[in-house]
Write a protein that binds this DNA or RNA. Structure first.
Lengths: 111, 111
DNA sequence: CGGTTAATTAGCTAGTCGGTAAAGTATGCC
DNA sequence: GGCATACTTTACCGACTAGCTAATTAACCG
């Protein structure tokens, strides 16, 4: 996968286990074992997923006694959402049913 | 990569070439050669990228004479954006700086 | 200290990804 | 038909990914 920030973030989101982990973290911080509990995969596999999420800046990790609590860091999702925002008009209106010429024309009118 | 729709869409977006192709298609339909022109990669590589985008439902392809014009289909981005929407509060407010207890408490108040 | 719990690292396998070159398919046009 | 244009498919390659088991590190507890 490419190394630019957006690619890393989208790449991190392209896995249901990682999205589920983020979902869990939306309810508050959790330890690695707590995060692993719902899944049928081993702890090392979870550890790898967490590293991917950390590289994407989607989680941060503390140190508390023998636990390493994870916490959600949603900031990178702002950039991802903003990137998608460019296309919002194409799914919120019926513009995507029109041909290019007409679309260009209408864009010029400020709608 | 997993096969659920959201994973396939995020996976398709996790590559800068594919995102650039979508960017080009936002200006209107284009043929494969037109899409390939800005890049330093071979046509087969572009063809593969297009197949990934098509599998994600992000483009559709027609047939006009000997050309196979591609057109943007932004609909899948709606689901992707909606998924991220769950986390909007975490980057639009300072909630993500507070601890879980406080966040839970404030959520109960409706903001 | 020794043992337990928490989590990461190392090393392996199988499969996917992004790219290539070369061959194949489809259509248009003389 | 025959040739050119526009892609696509096939076969291959090196790098990366997701999973495993086994071993290691780190911190607490008695």
């Amino acid at each position: 996968m490419a190394t630019d920030q957006l690619s890393v973030v989208f790449g991190a989101l392209a896995d249901p286990t990682r999205r589920a982990i983020l979902g869990r973290l939306a309810d508050g911080p959790a330890t690695v074992n707590e995060l692993a509990e719902p899944f049928d995969i081993t702890l090392p596999a979870i550890s790898k997923h967490l590293k991917v999420l950390e590289r994407a800046g989607l989680i941060s990790r503390g140190r508390e006694k023998q636990w390493r609590p994870c916490r959600l860091e949603a900031e990178p999702l702002r950039a991802a959402t903003e990137w998608m925002g460019r296309y919002r008009q194409f799914w919120e209106s019926s513009f995507d049913k029109l041909d290019d010429h007409l679309r260009t024309l209408m864009k010029g009118t400020g709608q």
